[in-house]
Simulated scan of single mutants.
Amino acid sequence: MKWLCAGAELVNDSSRGFDIEGRKLFAVRRGGQVYVYSNRCPHRGVALEWHPDQFLDPSNSLIQCATHGALFLIEDGECVAGPCAGQALTRIPSREDAQGIWVSL
C-alpha cells in the first residue's frame, strides 16, 4: 500500500489529484467515504480536472471531465452523461486509517 495523504487533507465534498510513482490519480471524499480513481477519462484517455484538484461539477455531486463534460458517479465511477455513458472510471483500491489514505497500485 502507498500513502496518499493525511485524511484531514481531503475534506467532505472535495477532490484532490495525486501523482504516485508516475500514475495520475485523484481522490474524492463524500459522506465521509473516500473514493480513488485513475485520472483518465474512458472517452479519450485525457486527465479529468478543470484546474489542479478540481474534479467535481459545480454542485460537488458528480465527477466531471473538463474536456467533454462527461459526468461520473462518485461512488462507483459510472459515466451517467456524456460521450462515454455506460463506461466507468478505473477505481483504485484504497483504505483509510489514523495515518491517512492509502492506495494499492
Results as ranks from 00 to 15, higher is better:
A27G: 10
L71R: 15
A98H: 13
W50C: 01
Y35T: 01
E96Y: 05
Y35D: 00
G22E: 11
G69P: 07
V36P: 04
L25E: 12
P58I: 07
I101F: 03
P42K: 03
P42E: 04
G22F: 07
G7D: 14
T67Q: 13
G82Q: 13
G45H: 13
R95F: 13
E9M: 11
S61E: 15
D53L: 03
E49A: 11
Y37I: 06
K24T: 10
E49W: 09
I92G: 05
A98Q: 15
E49S: 14
Q64V: 11
R23P: 01
G32I: 09
P42V: 03
M1N: 09
I101T: 03
G32Q: 11
F72N: 04
W3C: 01
L10A: 00
L105H: 08
E9T: 07
H51N: 13
I20S: 09
G77W: 10
A27T: 03
R95T: 11
D76A: 00
D53M: 03
R91K: 15
G31P: 10
Q99L: 09
V34I: 15
A8Q: 14
C84I: 08
E9R: 14
V36W: 08
G17D: 00
G69L: 04
L71V: 03
V46D: 05
F18I: 08
A88N: 05
F18E: 09
T67S: 14
G69N: 06
R23A: 12
D19V: 14
A88F: 02
C5E: 10
C5V: 06
N39A: 01
Q87P: 01
V80A: 04
I74W: 11
R29M: 07
A81T: 01
I101K: 05
A8I: 05
A81G: 00
I74K: 12
A98K: 13
R29G: 05
A8R: 15
L73F: 04
A27S: 03
L73P: 00
F26Q: 08
I74Y: 11
F55E: 04
E9V: 01
C5P: 06
L10H: 04
G86H: 07
L4R: 10
D19K: 10
S38E: 15
G69E: 05
L10T: 00
Q64K: 13
G7C: 08
G100M: 04
Q99W: 02
F18V: 08
R29H: 08
L48Q: 06
E96C: 14
G77R: 06
Q54V: 12
Y37P: 07
G77Q: 05
A6C: 05
S14Y: 00
D57P: 07
C79E: 10
P93G: 07
P83R: 10
S61Q: 15
R23E: 15
V46R: 10
C41W: 02
Q54A: 13
F18Q: 12
Y37W: 06
G82E: 11
E49Q: 14
S104Q: 13
G82H: 12
E9G: 01
L73S: 08
C79W: 07
Q64G: 00
G100E: 07
C84V: 08
K24H: 15
E21A: 12
G69T: 06
L56P: 07
S104G: 04
C79A: 14
G82D: 12
A66Q: 13
R44D: 14
I63S: 10
K24V: 04
V36Q: 02
D13E: 14
P42N: 04
E78K: 15
N60G: 04
R40F: 00
I63D: 12
R30N: 12
S15Q: 02
G82T: 10
C41R: 03
Q64H: 01
A70S: 15
C41E: 01
